[in-house]
Design a protein around this nucleic acid. Structure first.
Length: 274
DNA sequence: AACGAGTCCTGATCGC
DNA sequence: TGCGATCAGGACTCGT
């Protein structure tokens, strides 16, 4: 599933290629993935629009266009957002095709349709609750020291559940929550309120480390993820726990265990994570 | 407040 | 070979 590193990779890939590109035509649009506005309004606003500089907010791709609107894309579980040549075959489940003045096409594809597309002024989308409010981003400079010098997060929820809450940390999903907890040597089932300030600081630092390392490897491809040009990432090989249930812990050699926490499959080491 | 369960959805995998 | 069951889960809603 695309999380922060995957979305960041896509944004960095596409940013220089989309800048100043004009949308010649909306070649296809599946209304089921369009949360706002109507298909008619989308077409009217998109055609002729010129892209500015792409940005990422949590797991959302924000593509500003002339006139102040943002084309906002969330990839859900299986979404891809790629720049392809116009004569490339259109794959199944392609829900949006924008023809650009470069002859290329910007394509949004999502077999499982958990993702979404919006177009509008970002502030208005937030006020209308079409976009959620997001917590601090592990890639921001301001994230250093999260959750705050000497601060803790008082919650009865499992610390894993807290990491998956986009209002607490923007961009963290199941893979990197497990990886960060492993790096910080914290058991995912721990009640958040039981973590000390140094443990929180460790976790915050671990989040930034695992995200940056995954970006360096251009994201984790274990199923559907592709970068902005349709290629796979190679972070899967460097994962310490995710997808490694039953395999030896790289630190102590004991088999990693899988357990459902906060409704998600969670993998950790019973010895190394306390 | 915060949990679990249900919902959406398709493709990969597994057992028979 | 092929079929049905199961599982994967981000974000959201609803009931407890």
């Amino acid at each position: 599933m695309p999380e922060l590193p995957e979305v960041e990779t896509i944004v960095r890939d596409l940013r220089p290629h989309l800048r100043d590109r004009r949308v010649e035509a909306v070649l296809s649009l599946n209304p089921v993935v369009l949360r706002f506005p109507s298909a008619e309004s989308f077409r009217a606003a998109a055609e002729g629009a010129v892209f500015g500089l792409l940005a990422r907010r949590g797991k959302f791709i924000h593509a500003p266009v002339s006139g102040g609107d943002h084309l906002v894309v969330h990839l859900g579980m299986t979404g891809t957002f790629t720049l392809e040549e116009g004569d490339e075959p259109v794959r199944p489940h392609t829900h949006l095709r924008l023809q650009l003045d470069s002859g290329q096409e910007l394509r949004y594809r999502d077999p499982r349709r958990f993702g979404r597309v919006l177009l509008g002024p970002p502030r208005q989308l937030e006020l209308a609750r079409l976009l959620p409010s997001l917590g601090p981003d592990p890639l921001d400079r301001a994230f250093a020291g999260w959750p705050g010098e000497g601060r803790v997060i008082s919650s009865s929820r499992a610390v894993k559940a807290v990491l998956l809450d986009q209002e607490v940390v923007a961009g963290c999903g199941n893979i990197y929550a497990d990886e960060a907890l492993y790096l910080a040597r914290l058991r995912p089932t721990r009640r958040a309120a039981s973590l000390s300030a140094p443990e929180w600081a460790r976790l915050g630092a671990a989040l930034t480390v695992v995200m940056k390392e995954a970006i360096r490897r251009r994201g984790t491809s274990f199923s559907d993820y592709r970068d902005g040009f349709g290629a796979r990432g190679e972070a899967y090989e460097s994962l310490m726990v995710y997808g490694r249930s039953g395999l030896p812990c790289v630190r102590c050699g004991r088999p990693l265990v899988a357990q459902r926490v906060a409704g998600r499959t969670t993998v950790y080491c019973r010895r190394c994570q306390r």
